[in-house]
Structures are given as C-alpha cells and as structure tokens.
Amino acid sequence: MKWVESNLGLVWDLTLTHVALCIPPIVIGFLLSIPIGWFANRFRVSRGTILVVLGLLYTIPSLPLFIFMPLILGTSQVSSLNVTVALTIYAVALMVRSASDGFGSVDSDILQAASAMGYSGWQRFWRVELPLSGPVLLAGLRVVSASTVSLATIGSVIGVTSLGYLFLNGLQRTIPAEVASGIVAVLVIAVVFDLVIVLAGRLLLPWNRGDRSARATARAARRRAVLVAEGAS
C-alpha cells in the first residue's frame, strides 16, 4: 500500500496515457468496420472470405504483431503508432463480424418497405439500416472496447507506454501492489468505456427502450458478440 499512496500520480498519468492509446483504435476500428461489414453482408459471396480473413488476423498473438509493425509500417521501433495500428487491426477483426451480423439483423421486409417509400440506397442505409442494426453494432463495440483496453497493456513489452508499465516495473522491483494497481486501473477504464458506449447507445437509439422485442434483440446480440469473440492477447 505504501507504493500506491506515493504513486497515485503515476497511476493516474499512466491511466490517461492508456486511455489516449486505446481510443483511436476503438473509434477507427468501429468506423472502418461499418463499410466492410455492410459489404460482407450485402454480397454473400464476399462474406465468407472477409470473415475468414479477419478471423485469421485475430488469431495472431498480439506480441509478435506488435514486434512486426515497424517492419510493415516502416515506423520507428519505439513509435506508439505500432501499437495503435495493431490494436486497430484487432478491433476491425472483431467488429466486422458484429457489423455484418448487425446489417443482417435488419428485416428484409423493412428494407423493401423503405425502397418502396422512395428511399435511395444511400438514404436507406443512413435512415434505416444503420439505425436498426445499432443494437448489434453496440454489442460488438462493447467487446472491442474491453479487448482493446486489455491488449494495450502488452504494448509496454515493446516500449510503448501504457498501464502495462506497472506490470513490468512492479515485477522487477517485486512490488505486487504496483502490478495490482495496473490491473485495477485497466478494469476501471474498461468499465468506464463500457458505460460510455451503453449511454451513447441509449441516446442514439432511444427507440430501443421500453420495447421488449428490441431489448431481447440487444441481449441476443450482446451474447453473440461475447461468444464469437476469441483469440488475440
């Protein structure tokens, strides 16, 4: 406990750094997954290929992927971009499946109705498909967020600072409290991110509240997102 008291500042600073390291991959991964997921769902032929390739990416263990990033990107060995890009790859690999499921969950009758009402393909996407696949997208995003926050700690092994610093440093100095602080801080960030996503979902998808079937859909989506998520670390 001696360590925690005298190092609260360090834990807080590292927490902020960790947050800053995690947000770009989560946001960029989410944004990239929407067109890819839409494409995978729209053209059934491509779906299998896209999902298999992305599933393959997600089985690559994180440490070697981090190590190879400078070779692939031509970045410096010590650049935090290495971790950002690797985490984005994982985020996309996880998220595209959810996105594809999400677009697939929109009833084809509804899409036809929208077209019949004179919506163009573009309008139909923004006003019908995207909002209605919202619950499934959110469920996927929650898993991506938790996974990213956890994986970012391994960046410390290759010298990109995150809360993982506390694991390495705490080990060398034999300070279990330091390691434990790191674990707790990671979990706190994950919970806060999760709450923010759920809250954003409530604000953006208000029609889900109070509707029993919509809540059931959201729950099923969450369960599926959790169950299909595997690999990495």
């Binding site: 993982g164 674990i183 990671v186």
Partner: peptide
C-alpha cells in the same frame, strides 16, 4: 464480456 478486459499479462505477473 467484462473479463475480456482483464489484462492477462498483469494477472500472470
């Protein structure tokens, strides 16, 4: 879903 956020690396150490 939540346990996905548990940093295995830290827990191992």
């Amino acid at each position: 879903g939540g346990f996905r956020a548990l940093p295995s690396f830290g827990v191992i150490i």
